[in-house]
Simulated scan of single mutants.
Amino acid sequence: MKICVISFDFWNYDAHIVEELRRKGVDAHHINIGAYRHGSFSARIKNSISKILLKRNLKNKLRQEMILEKLNKLGPQDQILVINPELIDREFHVQIKKFTKRYIAYLYDSLARCPAQHLFDLFDNVFSFDKADAAKNSFQLITNYNYLPELKQTQPAEYDLIYLGSFDNRIGPLAKIIAKIEELNLSYSCVVVGKKTWTKKLVQNAGEITFTRKRIKHNDIPRYYSEGKVLVDLMRDNQTGLSFRFFEAMALKKKIITNNPTVKEYDFYRPENILVLNDDLSNLDRSFFESDYQELPVDVYEKYRIKHWVETVFELK
Rank of each mutant, 00 (worst) to 15 (best):
Val192Lys: 04
Phe289Lys: 08
Asp160Lys: 01
Ala206Asn: 14
Ile162Met: 04
Met1Trp: 07
Ala15Tyr: 06
Ile216Trp: 00
Ile177Tyr: 05
Leu111Val: 08
Phe99Gln: 13
Gln155Arg: 06
Glu91Gln: 12
Ser226Glu: 13
Val94Asp: 03
Tyr147Ile: 01
Ser110Gln: 01
Asn169Gly: 15
Glu302Thr: 03
Lys2Val: 08
Asn278His: 12
Leu54Asp: 10
Lys200Leu: 01
Met1Phe: 10
Met250Ser: 01
Asn72Trp: 08
Ile83Ala: 02
Lys152Gln: 07
Val193Met: 03
Val192Glu: 04
Ile80Val: 11
Lys46Ser: 14
Asn144Pro: 00
Asn12Asp: 15
Asn273Met: 06
Arg286Cys: 11
Leu119Trp: 01
Gly39Met: 12
Glu183Ala: 11
Asp285Leu: 10
Phe244Ser: 10
Asp78Cys: 06
Thr262Lys: 09
Met235Val: 07
Glu19Ser: 15
Asp292Trp: 01
Lys214Tyr: 06
Leu87Gly: 05
Gln117His: 06
Asp299Glu: 15
Glu20Leu: 03
Val313Pro: 02
Asn260Gly: 07
Val5Trp: 04
Leu164Phe: 14
Ala43Trp: 11
Ala175Pro: 04
Asp285Ile: 11
Lys55Gln: 12
Leu186Val: 03
Arg37Gln: 13
His308Tyr: 09
Asn146Trp: 00
Arg223Trp: 03
Cys114Met: 14
Ala105Gly: 01
Leu252Gly: 01
Lys70Val: 15
Lys176Tyr: 09
Tyr188Asn: 09
Gln79Asn: 11
Ala251Tyr: 02
Tyr147Glu: 08
Glu158Tyr: 04
Gly207Gln: 05
Gly228Ser: 04
Tyr293Thr: 03
Arg113Tyr: 05
Ile181Asp: 07
Lys136Cys: 07
Phe8Asp: 11
Ile142Pro: 00
Val232Pro: 05
Glu183Gln: 15
Leu119Gly: 00
Cys4Tyr: 08
Gly39Ala: 13
Asn12Tyr: 09
Glu19Met: 13
Leu107Arg: 06
Lys101Phe: 09
Leu62Cys: 07
Tyr225His: 12
Ala43Thr: 13
Ile96Val: 11
Thr262Asp: 10
Leu234Ser: 07
Asp168Leu: 03
